[in-house]
Computed example of a mutant assay.
Amino acid sequence: MPAMHYTIRWPDATQSVAYSPSLVIQDFFQPDVDYPLSDFMRRIREATAIANQRVAAKFGFVCSRAGDQLDDTERRAAAFALQPDAPVRIVAFGPAD
């Protein structure tokens, strides 16, 4: 199963590199498009759930790294919770290490 990294730019212009065990993230986001924080998080949650379903179907268990990544993304997003329309974007997609 192809895994990937993607770079997130947060509303304060900081960036973080995130991991997905599946390319499904690309079905939910276009690079260099701003998404309101609330929509971005809804999409990330859904994409992560689908990625984990794919991993479970293939290997019989979910990807703990994907869960950890979602937890990290949730923590970062919490810093902007009072700004649900704050822009978040995927800057780039890339291969996993």
Results as ranks from 00 to 15, higher is better:
50 I>D: 07
47 A>F: 15
9 R>F: 03
88 V>I: 08
24 V>A: 01
3 A>C: 12
16 S>T: 13
29 F>P: 13
37 L>R: 13
90 I>D: 05
41 M>C: 07
14 T>G: 03
27 D>I: 04
73 T>P: 08
23 L>Q: 10
26 Q>H: 10
88 V>M: 07
93 F>L: 09
32 D>R: 07
58 K>W: 00
78 A>N: 11
52 N>E: 14
21 P>K: 05
77 A>I: 00
19 Y>E: 04
85 D>T: 07
95 P>I: 02
37 L>D: 05
7 T>S: 11
75 R>N: 15
36 P>I: 02
31 P>T: 15
94 G>W: 01
31 P>V: 14
77 A>Y: 01
56 A>M: 00
1 M>N: 04
81 A>P: 05
1 M>E: 03
89 R>V: 02
37 L>P: 08
25 I>E: 10
95 P>H: 12
61 F>Q: 11
54 R>T: 02
97 D>L: 08
47 A>K: 15
56 A>R: 06
64 S>H: 02
28 F>T: 00
56 A>T: 00
48 T>F: 03
13 A>E: 06
81 A>K: 07
43 R>I: 07
65 R>W: 09
16 S>A: 12
2 P>S: 13
22 S>Q: 03
92 A>Q: 12
16 S>I: 00
28 F>D: 03
26 Q>P: 05
30 Q>L: 15
49 A>W: 11
66 A>Q: 06
14 T>Y: 00
94 G>C: 06
26 Q>W: 03
52 N>Q: 14
27 D>P: 03
9 R>Q: 15
86 A>D: 08
96 A>L: 11
24 V>Q: 04
68 D>L: 07
24 V>S: 04
2 P>W: 11
67 G>K: 10
46 E>N: 07
15 Q>E: 14
77 A>P: 03
10 W>G: 00
39 D>T: 02
45 R>L: 13
44 I>D: 05
23 L>V: 09
94 G>A: 06
89 R>T: 05
16 S>E: 13
11 P>L: 05
38 S>D: 04
90 I>F: 06
46 E>M: 10
33 V>I: 15
48 T>G: 10
2 P>I: 11
24 V>F: 03
76 R>E: 14
53 Q>H: 11
48 T>R: 04
2 P>Y: 14
86 A>F: 01
63 C>S: 12
69 Q>L: 13
47 A>Q: 15
53 Q>K: 12
56 A>G: 00
93 F>W: 09
30 Q>S: 13
61 F>E: 06
38 S>G: 00
25 I>P: 04
59 F>I: 13
73 T>K: 08
60 G>D: 06
63 C>M: 09
88 V>S: 09
4 M>Q: 12
84 P>W: 01
50 I>M: 09
82 L>N: 14
30 Q>C: 11
86 A>S: 08
18 A>F: 02
96 A>D: 10
42 R>D: 09
74 E>P: 08
37 L>N: 06
18 A>K: 04
51 A>F: 00
85 D>Q: 12
20 S>F: 05
15 Q>D: 07
22 S>F: 01
37 L>H: 11
69 Q>W: 08
7 T>I: 14
28 F>R: 02
44 I>P: 02
29 F>Q: 08
81 A>L: 12
36 P>L: 08
51 A>I: 09
57 A>Q: 14
48 T>C: 10
40 F>G: 03
69 Q>A: 12
43 R>P: 09
29 F>R: 13
41 M>W: 06
27 D>K: 15
96 A>E: 14
88 V>E: 05
33 V>L: 09
